[in-house]
Every structure is written in C-alpha cells, then in structure tokens.
Measured scan of single mutants.
Amino acid sequence: MLDDRARMEAAKKEKVEQILAEFQLQEEDLKKVMRRMQKEMDRGLRLETHEEASVKMLPTYVRSTPEGSEVGDFLSLDLGGTNFRVMLVKVGEGEEGQWSVKTKHQMYSIPEDAMTGTAEMLFDYISECISDFLDKHQMKHKKLPLGFTFSFPVRHEDIDKGILLNWTKGFKASGAEGNNVVGLLRDAIKRRGDFEMDVVAMVNDTVATMISCYYEDHQCEVGMIVGTGCNACYMEEMQNVELVEGDEGRMCVNTEWGAFGDSGELDEFLLEYDRLVDESSANPGQQLYEKLIGGKYMGELVRLVLLRLVDENLLFHGEASEQLRTRGAFETRFVSQVESDTGDRKQIYNILSTLGLRPSTTDCDIVRRACESVSTRAAHMCSAGLAGVINRMRESRSEDVMRITVGVDGSVYKLHPSFKERFHASVRRLTPSCEITFIESEEGSGRGAALVSAVACKKACMLGQ
C-alpha cells in the first residue's frame, strides 16, 4: 500500500517536472537572447534605426563620474514606483581627507489618484512632500541643488532636461508624456511658492545606482535594477552614441532593455503563462523582457503555473481556492519566502493557508518547484541581457580580458534567497573573457542622484555659470 502511494507521488512529481521543464533555458538559448539583445542595442544607438529599435539606448548626458572633490548639501528625489523618497545628502571631506556622503531620508507613498490623475496632481503632491521634508529638517530658507531620480523612459536633451516617452509600472498621470519632466517639477514648486529649489540633474535609477557604486569602486561602469521592473545602464564610447554629437570619451546610456521583445525577438521563448500575464497587464505587448524578470510579474506567473497544475490534477487534489483564482493573489514576496523555507515546509504551508488552501507535504514541495522554475528562468533571462552589455563593452574597448564592476539594486536581487547566485553564475558562463565584480548599492537611487548633481554643480562652477 505504502509502495503504491510512494509510486503515485513519484509519478505525480515526474509529471510536474515535465510541465515545469518549459521554463528551462539551455545555454544556447541564452546565447541567442544575448546576441539578439546586442543587435537591438546597436539599432538603438544608431541614428537611422533608433526610432524602430525596441531597446532605445537613451543617452543620459552623464559623462563624468564623481571624483571626490564636490562638497555641499544636496536634496535628492526618487520616483520610480508607488513609494517616493526625499533625501538630504551631505557631501563633504571625511576623516583623513576621505570623501564622505551622509544621508537623511523619508519615504512617502503615492496615492492612487496622483498616479493615475493628471501630471499637475502628481507633481503638486511631490512638491508637497518636499515642503514637508524641508519643514522637518528646518531647511526651507536654503535654496538647495536638487537631483531627481526618475525611473521611467526619458529622452534627455541635457542633464536637466528630459522628455517622458511613456509611463510604465502602473503610472498613468495624463499630460506628462511628451513633456519635460524637470519643467513639470519646477512648475509645481513655483505653484507652491513656499520654498526654492535648483533642479540641476535628472537621472534614471540605473544611472543613480551606477554612480553610487562608483563611489565604492571606481571600476563600476554598469548599473542595473532588478526590482519591480528590470533595466540597466553602462558607459558607452561616445563615438557609438549617434544621437549625441561628439566622439570623445564616454557617456552613460540608459538601455531601457525592459522593452526588448516588443518587436518579436522573444516570441519563441514566451510561454502561455507569459501571454496571460501580458494580456492582463496595463501595457499589453510592451516591456516583454521586463515581464519575464521583474517583481511586478513574478508572483503572478507562479500563480498561473499553480492553476495549470491544479487543472492537471497534480496539486491540491485538483481544487483551487477562490483566493488562488484571484489575479495578483500570489505576491512576489511569497516566491522569495517559499524558496527561503528551511525544509520543514512550515513557511510554505503558512503562505498557502493564507490563500485558503490546506496543502499536503507533496503540495508544498511542488509549489516550491514552481517558484524555483519561474525565478530561475528570470535570473537566466536577466543574465543574457547583462552578458550582452558586458561583452559589447569588452569588444568596443578591444580588451582581451576586461575587469568590470556592476552596481545592482532592486528588491528581487536583494531579497530573493537564490536569485543573485543563479544570476551571477549564468552571467559568468556567458562572459568567459571578463572578470566581473557585483556590488549592491546602498540607498543607491538617492545618493547617486545627489552625486550626479554634485558633478553638475562642479561643472557649472568651472564653466562660470
């Protein structure tokens, strides 16, 4: 009897593995994704193909990295998701002549009506938060230079001027797309009239992360975010950046690689679950690469896999709870928690219980395998993109072996128990001629924006502006 049951459990697990095998990517698959990513990057950089390229390769006008001589107080704003952060950054000489960066910050959550109302409502709310922060720190009387981390696709015309191309991540505030974001912020500050600010720089969160990590390690020339969304930036040779005049030196390019796949480059790798996630998203047909990796989508992918296993009578005796059938019910943090389970399955059992399920031991094991399959594919897909960037940098610099540091931020990278190990191992397999160091950014977005502002202020002083 026991043997029969054991055989049935083994057969069930084997069927589960057959279904989950769809998520496995072979090294040849990853090399294919990497080569296609490089081709799209090239198209994004070139003037004649930029418009139709899915990977936009947006110039950021960040050319210099901090040298350690900029000092002063800077205000930093960070808008990239449902939370908005205001930070005071003091850049100065530390002990023994070292450079020191001290920060104080406060988080504000953005109400739904500000995210989806008008641009005026959104930026009025942001300036209200700045006003509140300055009151708390008794700094209303000071006109501070301000660095703005704005983590949406922007076409820069200068370091302090950028046109919002399109909202992502659930934002829909009308009247912002096609307009200068810094102008919208300046107008809102003017409307309030109770404080003055000098907006000197606007950067993407990947750029802010790279600059913040450069402060720790001067070989950091790539910034990457794996959180709600997924994106990367890197220092490109100016001669390859056709959208900006000049051939000397390097400029940081914001790849906006989340949109890779929007022209069909990933079609052969998309599964039924991916198509369902895409169809029910706020932007169907867009940001397809990001939807395979980002935390906004990972939990939902797992939920759809679990429903398939229920329908195949391989999980929960073929019956799903009402909660499990509800879109968004299986949160991405559950994926991390399930994979963090120590082996007694308590954590998995508790999560499934909150979803109205009474799982068996085998159910718990199957749910864990589903989570591992989805998150491992995410790590491997992400590795193909980064390997594409790094191999490109090595080739354009004609280096036999390139040493490089990548600064990384984002909740999936930082909080998932195995993502970074799987990701690092896969990147290294795909970049055999590179020695890569990964560092995690601390308060990256805010500190990085302030350091970019410090560079901009120093330049302005040198130019006598």
Rank of each mutant, 00 (worst) to 15 (best):
A329F: 10
H156V: 04
V199Y: 00
Q138R: 10
V335G: 13
M298V: 06
L47V: 09
R333G: 14
E22C: 14
V427I: 12
V226L: 07
K169W: 02
T326Q: 14
I439D: 10
A449V: 09
C233G: 07
D267K: 05
Q239E: 13
L2D: 12
Q24L: 08
D3Y: 11
V199P: 00
A387R: 03
F269W: 15
G175L: 01
L25P: 08
V253G: 02
P359S: 10
T362I: 07
I130E: 02
L451N: 00
R63T: 14
D267I: 11
P66F: 15
K296N: 12
L463Y: 11
G407Q: 00
V226N: 03
L134G: 01
S280D: 09
S174D: 08
G264Q: 13
E93L: 09
E9S: 14
L77N: 03
L146R: 04
F150A: 08
D267C: 13
R333K: 14
L243C: 13
S321K: 15
E128D: 15
D400W: 15
L357E: 11
G162E: 02
C129D: 00
M197V: 15
T362S: 09
N204G: 03
T49V: 08
V412Y: 05
F260Y: 05
A10G: 11
P66W: 13
I211N: 15
V207H: 06
N180C: 06
G299H: 09
P153G: 03
E93N: 07
F152N: 04
V71P: 15
V89M: 12
E331S: 14
L301V: 08
R250W: 09
L307N: 14
E216S: 15
E256M: 02
L306T: 14
V427L: 08
T82L: 03
F152G: 03
D198C: 04
G80M: 00
L122F: 00
T354F: 09
D262V: 07
W99L: 15
G261T: 07
G261F: 03
D267R: 10
K459R: 15
S445W: 00
N240Q: 15
T118I: 03
W167C: 05
I366V: 11
I110E: 02
M57W: 01
A282N: 15
I211L: 04
V406I: 12
M87F: 14
G229C: 05
M197P: 02
L47R: 14
S353C: 06
T206G: 07
S212H: 06
R191T: 03
L357D: 07
T332Q: 14
G72N: 08
F152L: 01
R333A: 15
A11C: 14
T255N: 02
C252S: 05
E96A: 12
E322G: 14
D363N: 09
E70I: 15
E22Q: 13
G44M: 01
M202K: 04
F23Q: 07
N166A: 11
V338L: 10
S396E: 12
M210V: 01
Q138G: 07
E290L: 00
S375E: 06
Q26F: 11
R369V: 10
V71N: 15
K161E: 07
G223W: 05
G249E: 13
K172G: 03
R155I: 07
Y214G: 15
K15P: 12
H105G: 13
V101L: 09
E52R: 10
N240M: 14
L288F: 09
S340Q: 08
N166R: 03
D132F: 03
L146Y: 01
F133K: 04
Q337W: 12
S453H: 02
S151E: 04
V91C: 07
V154I: 00
L75S: 09
V200F: 03
G162R: 00
F123D: 03
F269L: 10
L270N: 04
D311P: 13
K12P: 13
T206N: 00
N283D: 05
F316Q: 08
P432R: 10
A460M: 15
L243V: 08
R358F: 12
K13N: 14
V222I: 12
N283E: 03
C364N: 10
N391S: 11
T209V: 13
D400C: 13
L288P: 13
D363S: 08
R394P: 04
L430R: 04
D135N: 10
I159N: 00
G92A: 11
S340N: 09
N204M: 00
V335P: 06
K291Q: 02
L386D: 00
T342C: 14
N313A: 12
L276V: 11
N204E: 06
M202S: 00
S64W: 15
R429W: 13
D78H: 04
S453D: 04
V91N: 03
M210Q: 10
S69Q: 02
M462W: 12
T149K: 01
G249A: 13
E22K: 06
R394I: 09
L146S: 01
C457A: 13
L45W: 03
C233Q: 01
S353A: 10
I439V: 07
S280G: 08
G94T: 10
A119G: 01
R327P: 09
E242D: 08
E17Y: 06
P59R: 03
G147M: 03
A378V: 02
L430S: 06
K15C: 09
Y413C: 03
F74W: 05
F133P: 03
V182L: 03
E245V: 14
M57N: 04
N391H: 12
E67M: 11
E435G: 08
C371P: 05
I130V: 05
V207K: 03
D409K: 02
F84M: 14
N313G: 11
L271M: 07
T103C: 07
Q38H: 08
W167V: 03
I404N: 06
E96Y: 11
G264L: 11
E372S: 13
K140D: 04
E14W: 09
K161R: 13
I390E: 00
V200W: 05
Y108C: 03
V203A: 01
G318I: 08
K12R: 15
R46S: 13
L430W: 08
I163N: 04
D400F: 10
Q287K: 05
V310K: 15
G388Y: 03
E40W: 02
A11Q: 13
V253K: 04
K143F: 06
L58S: 02
V374C: 13
D274Q: 00
H424E: 13
N313R: 12
N204T: 02
